[in-house]
Design a protein around this nucleic acid. Structure first.
Ligand SMILES: [Mn+2]
Ligand SMILES: [Mn+2]
Ligand SMILES: [Zn+2]
Ligand SMILES: [Zn+2]
Lengths: 140, 140
DNA sequence: CGTGAACTGGTAACGGTTTTCATCTGCAGC
DNA sequence: GCTGCAGATGAAAACCGTTACCAGTTCACG
């Protein structure tokens, strides 16, 4: 009742591999990226299967997906299953989950003001995290 | 000095066609959509050229581009060249330009709070506009 | 064990976008 | 008005992330 998982019926080596790798990652990662790392570390999973599990996780609500400006899909395991947004470092990709009451209220108000209903919204904040701005300059 | 146009060096029939069609459109439109309408109305432009002009306009800052969830790029001529966001109807695509002081403040604050600098953000609000929710039901 | 539904993964297809390159054209300079 | 040519065009091919297809594999259950 509590977990509205639309997950797979069986637990497989591949499914566990994808899910746990994403869980161990700190930021958004692409399917191909995950696939490459799995292959590199020995326990390989087909690219198709990586996509399948990521899609299941997104459907289940435990993973967020977003599109980069050049059309690539990025996935991230979210600690909080409730509605929230991300503050992402443009350098290292690390993401912090943030909730924004102010934004929720604003979105609702601006929509109502223009006669819109069934409002939904997407908010992404990108910047350079403290660690990266203190770290080595992007020389080469 | 005022216009920081990174536009093309020459004025061509094709460039004018793309720009004015987008100008006459009320919401976000895809490159293929624009290409199809130009072809339909007789004054045809190569798809490649449509993409090229849209890219120039985006670079010049007079046009906004966003990605749909399935990776398609959508373009819109913005009336306001200053920073703003859009309230888009998920049914008819009509977009209203809105500025959100509350969101700007929130984004800055939440970033500062987590030690992030050089903050940027994207905010999109989608809903059903008054006209569409009053109009014909999405039957067939 | 035996059966079948779920799962896997190589390969092919898909679709939007970009690159390539031969051809064309706006326009600055005569 | 011409001419020259850098800039622009567009059909076709390449690109690339993603999805569909489908034959083979795995696993829960009787
Ligand atoms: Mn929100
Ligand atoms: Mn803003
Ligand atoms: Zn960082
Ligand atoms: Zn509408």
């Amino acid at each position: 009742m509590t977990t509205a998982r639309a997950g797979r019926a069986r637990s497989t080596r591949q499914g566990v591999a994808v899910e746990s790798l994403l869980e161990a990652s700190s930021g958004f990662r692409s399917a191909q990226d995950l696939h490459a790392e799995l292959r590199r570390r020995g326990d390989a999973v087909g690219l198709t299967t990586v996509y399948r599990h990521l899609q299941s996780l997104v459907d289940g609500g435990s993973v967020d997906m977003l599109r980069t400006v050049d059309g690539e899909a990025l996935y991230r395991q979210c600690a909080d299953s409730r509605h929230h947004h991300h503050l992402v470092c443009r350098r290292c990709g690390t993401a912090v989950e943030v909730s924004g009451q102010a934004v929720e209220r604003w979105a609702g108000a601006v929509a109502r003001e223009h006669g819109f209903t069934d409002v939904d919204h997407t908010v992404e904040v990108v910047g350079t995290c403290g660690e990266c701005s203190a770290g080595p300059a992007p020389s080469s």
